[in-house]
Design a protein around this nucleic acid. Structure first.
Length: 114
DNA sequence: CGATTGACGTACG
DNA sequence: TCGTACGCCAATC
């Protein structure tokens, strides 16, 4: 199957608790900077993932919880994010820029051996 | 098989 | 500065 989804899930699961990333960042981490839309699509297919994917840590480049509608009406992204210590205001991650976790950069640092 | 969509992002008007 | 249009690649209808 499309490893693309698995790659996305892997990156998303690599996001530390209390941190968030963006679709574009994940896409770029996979080598498809312009393919941000596919990341969302892949996360949409995250339900077919064997393990639960913390897609709630993935937001758009503005830090807005755009995928909240896809999560469910009850247990939404904001609640989960707050569960991890991430403050959410008006459907947007507070101090998102500080909580932003760029997989393309962070993972690259680990590859270098810190 | 062909056209449209998609949890986005960038470029242009 | 704000709004609209288009492009990404793959999946779905």
């Amino acid at each position: 199957m499309a490893r693309f989804e698995e790659e996305v899930w892997a990156v998303v699961r690599a996001v530390p608790v209390g941190r968030v990333t963006t679709y574009g960042a994940v896409a770029r981490a996979l080598g498809m900077e312009g393919a941000s839309r596919r990341v969302g699509w892949a996360l949409n297919a995250c339900n077919r993932a064997a393990e639960p994917v913390p897609a709630h840590r993935v937001v758009n480049r503005l830090g807005m919880l755009t995928g909240q509608a896809h999560f469910g009406t009850g247990w939404s992204m904001e609640d989960r994010l707050e569960q991890e210590g991430i403050r959410v205001k008006a459907g947007r991650v507070v101090e998102f820029e500080e909580l932003f976790w760029d997989a393309a950069v962070e993972l690259a640092h680990e590859a270098e051996g810190t």
